[in-house]
Design a protein around this nucleic acid. Structure first.
Lengths: 148, 148
DNA sequence: TATTGTTATACTCTATAACTATA
DNA sequence: TATAGTTATAGAGTATAACAATA
């Protein structure tokens, strides 16, 4: 206790719940991430490939994909190169702009995407919650995000 | 709608809230992370250095620090090397085990650590919530984590 | 023989700059 | 001249393997 006296715990008495909530949110995120990583690993995908697969439900240009992946265009080239070698995606000429390319999932890519989405919906760390409990959690999260 | 018919949304009607909750939790985490990164950047620290600084409230061996940082021992050497050059931490002989080293914060390190903890408690993305709202959020999070 | 911390090394991911082909 | 995608390259961060000192 003596060493903890100088900790800013006392300073922030009014904000005392913030740390606890932070750690709870962090733990929930870790669990959800672990779940996602497991489902992704079952399909031999990296997290970025999985995100790209999900986002390519409709065709996108490399720049559009870069925007949703929050990365730079060269990284899209990097990721799509590998997915193309795996036969998951094709680069087609863009119908309106000959500089651009349309990234389109192959049949195998579409199939894998649906498989991923289906797996993501199974064994969720929230499966034990009832509908009402989830609604209550959602409402509190919306309040935290100031969107209640 | 025709293309979405094959999406697993319909398959998981009972789990429909899971995706929404995931995205809300993810967004809240992003906001908290952004807040943390800002506070850390104010002190010219990297996220890993900041975490190490927080964890070194009491002295630890390199392996102990590796455990809490969820990384391998060589990375602790990597991180502590830089913090030692900055005069934040010392490597002392371990009193019980001459193979090990005790990582101990210097006065400057302790001061910076308290500064970091204080800053972390300011301008939190949860500051707009009342005490009761935070308590309700905490309870729902505990329920989600099955610790209610 | 096992363990601690370090060194040497390689790999992954991400970013910037320069290039090409279009616009 | 500006933009789309690619290539070349460099950097941060993390991992594994081998080593010296100690248990």
């Amino acid at each position: 206790m003596s060493t903890e006296l100088s900790e800013p715990t006392a300073v922030t008495a009014t904000a005392c719940g913030v740390r606890e909530i932070r750690s709870l949110v962090t733990e929930l995120t870790h669990r959800m991430d672990a779940h996602r990583r497991s489902r992704i690993a079952e399909l031999d995908l990296t997290p970025t490939q999985a995100k790209a697969l999900e986002e390519l439900g409709e065709p996108k240009t490399a720049r559009e994909l870069a925007a949703v992946l929050c990365c730079e265009p060269p990284n899209v080239t990097y990721v799509i190169d590998k997915m193309q070698k795996q036969g998951l995606v094709e680069r087609r000429p863009h119908p309106q702009d000959r500089r651009a390319k349309q990234l389109v999932l192959t049949d195998a890519g579409r199939e894998l995407r649906l498989d991923l989405l289906r797996r993501m919906a199974t064994n969720s760390p929230l499966d034990h919650m009832s509908h009402d409990e989830r609604a209550a959690l959602r409402d509190q999260l919306l309040r935290a995000l100031d969107r209640a």
